[in-house]
Design a protein around this nucleic acid. Structure first.
Lengths: 192, 192
DNA sequence: CGATTAAATTGACCATGGTCATTTTAATAA
DNA sequence: TTATTAAAATGACCATGGTCAATTTAATCG
């Protein structure tokens, strides 16, 4: 017979996550080591992998939660009516996603899921991001010749493009915002 | 005094690359192991890392070469005049870049360079891809209200978006092409 | 309360990428 | 030709993520 989850399990899991958050706060995501998480949490290494499929699954969890928190704030604000305000509204999101090159890589790697039952926190936030954009675009003074969902996906694509390009030394004379706005103008206000 | 590169060095390097290509041909990119490359090439492990900074640097080299080869063919063909033909023309490129999930991940990770002197083969091809697109767009019957380089970057962004989405189980009812064309129409032919 | 059993935990062990002091090879100097 | 030395190659070793058979813990049963 299936037994209920023990309180102990939840405590162990919470300790592991707290330990990871502590390491991240001190040294950043890139320096996160399973060894250290386990040491701080006071568990064996095997316990870590009993709770998380692999190290990236923990990253997925933590980053997904952070992105969700940012989306909560973004959703609470009034919908932007200009591309400049839109780009500004997305700054907290792009800041988080590009806080470290490693973080951006993990996010991209986990932004899709090979199987329906593998959809993780980050992939879920990607869906939510597009939904938020779509809600904005539905009643904003932007182009209406294409469906709002396609428009939203485009905003997302350009956001990713701007972030990726911003990491590259070849193009780092411009700020992310200055790169993002021209894309948005061309996409949301053609012929304007 | 600086001495010329020995023929031996070039031979060793060629053997390593050939061994890697052989493994990839047999088992795919994902299954590539430095151990096996070194075994087949008849060198020590340390030799591998004397020739390539790390395993990913070899991937960068091999994938960069393959992308370049595809771009050569693409450039040789006449410039597309419709979005459908454009999407069709890019199929060999998207096929290569998405032949394996791991390959796509490596390409994204190496598509930018943190420092000018770190620009590798894949990052170089990304620049070239946009140049090819730009050349096409310069005298094609598409929108002219935005600069050709911005338009080309947009095509690239949508190509990446279409590929990424195509890997995701949430959206795999549609072919990459069917996902790509609507983006291109909305981007290149607004209001049409 | 024992006895039973499923869940949770453990840590020795493995897989694989990567390092570096040492050795070997070959190009140049004497 | 022999000595010198820079370049190349070596492989034992390390770092780190991940596995799994064995052990411990705690929920349930009689």
């Amino acid at each position: 017979m299936a037994r209920a989850v023990q309180k102990r399990t939840l405590e162990t899991r919470a300790r592991l996550i707290a330990a990871a958050e502590a390491v991240i706060a001190e040294k950043g995501f890139e320096a996160l080591r399973v060894e250290e998480v386990v040491l701080r949490a006071g568990t064996a290494k095997g316990t870590f992998f009993a709770h998380f499929k692999d190290k990236d699954a923990l990253m997925d969890l933590i980053l997904g939660a952070r992105i969700d928190a940012v989306l909560d704030k973004i959703e609470a604000a009034p919908p932007p009516k200009t591309v400049e305000v839109l780009a500004e509204a997305l700054a907290p999101l792009t800041d988080l996603m590009t806080c470290e090159r490693y973080v951006f890589d993990v996010i991209l790697r986990y932004s899709g899921a090979a199987a329906i039952d593998e959809i993780g926190p980050i992939a879920t936030t990607f869906g939510r991001q597009v939904e938020v954009f779509e809600a904005w675009l539905k009643d904003a003074p932007f182009r209406r010749d294409v469906p709002a969902d396609l428009l939203a996906e485009g905003v997302h694509a350009f956001m990713l493009q701007a972030m990726a390009t911003n990491f590259c030394a070849l193009h780092n004379a411009m700020s992310l915002r200055d790169r993002f706005v021209p894309y948005l103008k061309a996409w949301l206000l053609p012929m304007a």
